[in-house]
């Protein structure tokens, strides 16, 4: 009777031996069609040890699909994904469990297990993959909840938490087993600006204190500016641009510039306002953007 690999003690390859800046995740010519539509059309991307890469792109452009490929939750139609040197696209689901133990993921809707308490959610990976005693696990749960600024909520259920608290508990769950990589799927979506900033600060804190490699998928530009070491833009199923945040926000690339400025294209304006009114509204929007803010009272 062979125990499934998932039942084994987490023993992923030590990431700390990989020098900072070395490539740890390489995606080559990744293609995927869903429901008859090609969502990813040959994505190429390299992520380096210890960096925070922010992937930006419009809604439905395939950012979350890309993230789920990295975790092996989706099988690509073609292409390769090398994680710390291992091609996961050729792996069986059972072998992927070992790879996934190197990852922590924050889902867009937190995806906490409704029927479990916060403590059970956070200690899930420890319960499943470690041989720690209940006291040790409780200690880790308390420590991780303290890191995300939520001490004392161990016995609450997800339904009793606000949206921001759920995200922070999900973050505590993601870091419970000390992963090598942290994946964030729209970490600030649905949160108020202050709670969004709390999450951004946590992302920065975890990157520096845990020395994890982070991949953040978002279309929140304030979040991207705060957490990114590097930014990549996914458009029409391919990475069309990648650079530092400073260069990205000053980019001459029309698609990137419109995205980071949150500006609709002329075609979209015409669809909404009509042919002539579209141009007038575009001028008005440009004038508003240039208007200086009112003085503080």
């Amino acid at each position: 009777m062979n125990p499934a690999p998932e039942s084994q003690e987490a023993a992923p390859a030590a990431p700390r031996e990989i020098p900072k800046g070395a490539p740890v995740l390489e995606i080559r010519e990744l293609r995927k069609s869903l429901g008859g539509k090609e969502v990813l059309k040959g994505v190429n991307l390299t992520v380096r040890q210890g960096e925070a890469l922010v992937v930006i792109g419009g809604s439905g452009c395939g950012k979350s699909v890309l993230l789920k490929h990295i975790l092996g939750l989706f099988k690509p139609d073609s292409g390769s994904i090398h994680i710390e040197g291992e091609d996961i696209t050729q792996m069986h689901e059972r072998d992927l469990f070992g790879i996934r133990q190197r990852f922590g993921m924050l889902f867009q809707g937190a995806a906490l297990f409704d029927s479990m308490t916060v403590a059970d959610n956070v200690s899930f990976a420890l319960d499943e993959h470690s041989k720690k005693s209940p006291a040790e696990k409780l200690e880790i749960v308390r420590k991780k909840l303290a890191i995300v600024g939520l001490p004392g909520v161990e016995n609450k259920y997800p339904a009793e938490l606000s949206g921001g608290m759920k995200k922070r508990v999900a973050l505590a769950r993601a870091i419970a087993a000390d992963p090598h990589f942290l994946l964030y799927d729209e970490p600030t979506t649905g949160l108020d600006p202050i709670m969004s900033d709390v999450i951004n600060e946590l992302i920065v804190k975890l990157k520096t204190s845990l020395r994890v490699t982070s991949i953040i998928v978002t279309h929140d530009m304030a979040s991207a500016r705060k957490v990114a070491d590097r930014m990549a833009m996914l458009d029409e199923g391919v990475i069309i641009y990648h650079d530092t945040p400073e260069n990205t926000f000053a980019s001459d690339n029309d698609i990137v510039r419109r995205f980071v400025e949150g500006k609709a294209s002329m075609e979209q304006m015409k669809e909404i306002w009509g042919e002539s009114a579209g141009k007038a509204q575009e001028s008005e929007n440009t004038r508003r953007r240039r208007r200086p803010p009112p003085p503080a009272q």
């Binding site: 939750l73 689901e93 995806a111 297990f113 409704d114 990976a125 993959h129």
Partner: peptide
């Protein structure tokens, strides 16, 4: 996405 979360936590 709780089923995806289970798989992401290396659990079948």
């Amino acid at each position: 996405e709780q089923v995806d979360a289970l798989r992401a936590l290396a659990t079948s």
